[in-house]
Simulated assay, not measured.
Amino acid sequence: MRNFKEDIVNGIWEILRENIEQELSKESISVEAPRNRDFGDYTTNTALKIAKELHRKPMDVALYLRQELEIKCPWVEKITVVEPGFVNFFLGDQSLYEVLTRRASDDEGIFSRKDVPFHWQEKLQAFLEEDECRRNLKDMQYVHSRIHSILKLLREEGIRLEEVEEKQIVYEKSDLEKEVLRKLGAFSQQVEVALKHDRPEDILNYGMGLGKLYFKLHEKTLFRQLEKPRLHGALRIMEVMGLIIRTILEAFEIEAPEKM
């Protein structure tokens, strides 16, 4: 599964090395998800950082990066440049929905018990002493059990997602659904940042936030009233949410209940 942030960083690094002869480490290239989605799914300030050294205007550098990145990152639907020199990336639906090809093995490769530093358990213990955190954790566990129960029940009724062809799946493609997909796609990035800054609570907060999105997405969904293609789409998204939540809970040795 594509790591969007990593691919953009690699694209910028290759452009700087090959065309501008500017040596920057990949770690120094900042690509982040902006708080305001009007600025895209990802944004970079690289042009602002290197313009002075290149004796060029930041906007000129940003425009050049956009031109080259449109070639290197064809999976990005749109790339824009904003004053004073930010480059913004907008993912198309096809890229967003790629996250739904995720399987349990993908998440275990991103984050598992062996990746958890020993001292994180102590830090998490202090974090979970807060009442709000305990409530959010319980909600997260409930979401996992709820997803497991729904998938199990429908599986017993003959709906097996592994046997459903892509042409039999229809997604709602609402703003909320796409927000969920962006959240799912940010999992590897969240783990990377948390490990770098020694903040295990960020990963748990991510999982809790995913649980809250589940309630927003499905609080009024009547699954049995959905037509089969839409039902398949809703279940596919739910399945991936459950996989990631389970991965986080098990990595921290917290119960991922199948029934509550």
Rank of each mutant, 00 (worst) to 15 (best):
N36Y: 13
Q225I: 13
I20K: 14
N136Q: 13
V164D: 00
I79V: 05
K220R: 12
D139N: 14
E14I: 11
A234N: 06
E201A: 00
V99M: 08
L100Q: 07
L181A: 04
R230I: 08
V31R: 07
M241T: 04
T247P: 04
F127W: 06
G158E: 04
R246G: 12
T44L: 00
D198G: 10
P200I: 06
F90K: 02
V191K: 03
G207E: 00
K52W: 06
M241K: 04
I237E: 10
D93N: 11
E130V: 14
E14C: 11
D60S: 00
R135F: 12
F223G: 04
K78A: 07
M238K: 10
I15Y: 08
G185Q: 06
L69V: 05
S145V: 00
M1H: 11
E172T: 11
E14H: 05
E227Q: 11
L249F: 06
E132G: 11
P74Y: 04
L100N: 01
R113A: 15
D198E: 15
H218N: 10
S95C: 07
L63K: 09
K173N: 15
E172G: 06
E68R: 07
Q189D: 14
V143S: 02
A126S: 15
Q190C: 11
E70N: 04
E129Y: 08
L54N: 06
K220I: 09
A104N: 07
S95I: 07
V9S: 05
L213Y: 02
H119C: 02
L181T: 15
R56K: 09
D198H: 08
R160G: 05
I159V: 14
S112M: 09
I203C: 01
E166C: 09
I237G: 07
Y142M: 13
V81F: 03
G85H: 02
M59D: 05
A62C: 14
A256C: 02
P74F: 02
I254K: 10
A47G: 09
D93V: 08
G85M: 01
L231N: 03
F111I: 02
L154W: 03
S95G: 05
F118A: 12
E179I: 02
N19V: 07
F111H: 11
L231V: 01
M59W: 05
E192S: 03
A33M: 13
E179M: 14
I50Q: 01
L195W: 01
A126I: 15
T46F: 09
E130I: 12
E179R: 15
M260Y: 12
D115C: 06
L226N: 00
D93Y: 14
P257T: 01
I15M: 11
L137N: 10
F187W: 01
K138V: 13
F4A: 14
